[in-house]
Simulated assay, not measured.
Amino acid sequence: MAIDDEDGGGAAGQPGRLILTVYGLYARERGGWLPIAGLVRLLGEMGVNVQAVRSAIHRLKRRGLVDAQRRADAAGYALSADAYGLLAEGDVRIFGHTRGAADDGWLLVVFSVPDTERAKRHQLRSTLTRLGFGTVSPGTWIAPSHLRDATVETLERAGLAGFTQVFTGPHVAGGDLSELVASWWDLDGLQALYADFLDRFEPVGARWLDGTGDDARAFVDLVDMLTAWRRLPYADPGLPLELLPADWNGRRAQELFSALSARLREPAARHVEAMLGPAEAPARSLPASRAG
């Protein structure tokens, strides 16, 4: 689920991102649709008021991610075709997060954009940043090779492929690869993001993994955690562990996310069913997430 809305501090400050998490988790097994009244009740449990929910859903509608629909005389919003594709792409990145090895090779995107297309240059840089690329030089960006297919598909979908050349291959010479990786990516910044996640959710993990809680609390904690986690597999594109600092905390954060997701998904789904009624189709399990 890579279609973030606005950033924010607490739950009440980021209703758009929370709504996208709820849709990604629960709408697709309900025909891609959720009733607005039910969405208001669910988000209300996370401290988001009615007006904030309605404002956020209207912004998502303007972005083409949801469409207003009535079903069985109930008002609600359905995922657009574009949103379905983006959510499926995000599932792979978030729940199937792949970590490469140094000998797997690297992916290079080289681009040259004429001055008359400056907006495309900015779009290219923003797109590659969102995919998790590091910067070798202004027109040369790098990522682990396992991002090849996702990168090619994203560039084509965005209409940017004509400005780029895409290569894969090993690093042969030109410096210590660990030092180069540290210059291409902001590893200190990544460590700080992981540290924030651990500080916030290790106490949640301790409460759930060693004990119990009610279904409503499971829903709140799962949506809150997934909303906070969602950007991290994009900021860290699965850099090889052997090239990262010895105290790298990303692996511990991934293990916490995987364990807590597995623990919370069933009670959270029960709570959503109690609030909205049974799903139209058999519940779709979250993809199994892999630590690494």
Rank of each mutant, 00 (worst) to 15 (best):
G96P: 01
V223H: 00
T151Q: 02
R28P: 01
D115F: 09
A143S: 15
V136W: 15
G105K: 02
L20D: 06
V272T: 05
K120M: 06
A268M: 11
A52P: 08
V220M: 10
L193W: 11
S112N: 12
R130A: 14
G10R: 13
L160V: 14
R200M: 03
D91A: 14
D199G: 12
V66I: 07
A102P: 07
G90R: 04
R252L: 11
G8I: 11
P278S: 15
G13Q: 14
Q123C: 01
R130D: 10
Q254D: 14
V272L: 02
G47L: 02
A173R: 15
Y234F: 14
R231T: 12
G8T: 05
R63E: 11
A12F: 10
E6D: 10
D186K: 08
A158S: 03
F219Q: 08
L131W: 06
D5G: 12
T164W: 02
G205A: 15
P138G: 10
K120P: 04
V204A: 08
E255T: 15
E45N: 05
S261M: 07
E89C: 00
G44W: 14
A218M: 10
G38A: 01
T98D: 02
G90L: 07
P240V: 14
R62F: 06
G32C: 11
G85K: 09
K120W: 02
M225W: 00
G96C: 03
G189W: 10
V40E: 10
V136I: 15
L193Q: 13
R30N: 12
L260E: 02
I36D: 01
A235G: 03
G211L: 03
A269N: 02
G90K: 06
G162I: 13
A281H: 13
A259P: 00
L286F: 12
V272H: 00
L239M: 09
R41M: 09
G38C: 06
V136Y: 14
A52Y: 03
F219M: 09
V109A: 09
L244D: 01
A81T: 05
L244V: 14
G13T: 02
F257P: 03
A253M: 05
G238W: 08
I57G: 00
P144S: 04
P245A: 05
E45G: 15
A2P: 04
R157N: 02
Y234I: 01
A11E: 09
R265H: 06
E273Y: 02
P278F: 07
D186A: 09
G139F: 13
S289C: 13
L87A: 03
A12W: 06
G277W: 04
G189E: 06
V172H: 13
S285E: 13
T164M: 03
L239F: 13
A218Y: 02
L239W: 12
P267F: 12
G134S: 11
E117T: 03
L243S: 07
V53R: 04
A52W: 08
A206D: 15
L187C: 09
S258T: 11
I57K: 00
Q165A: 15
L244G: 02
Q14C: 14
P144W: 00
S178K: 13
D199Q: 12
L107M: 00
L180M: 13
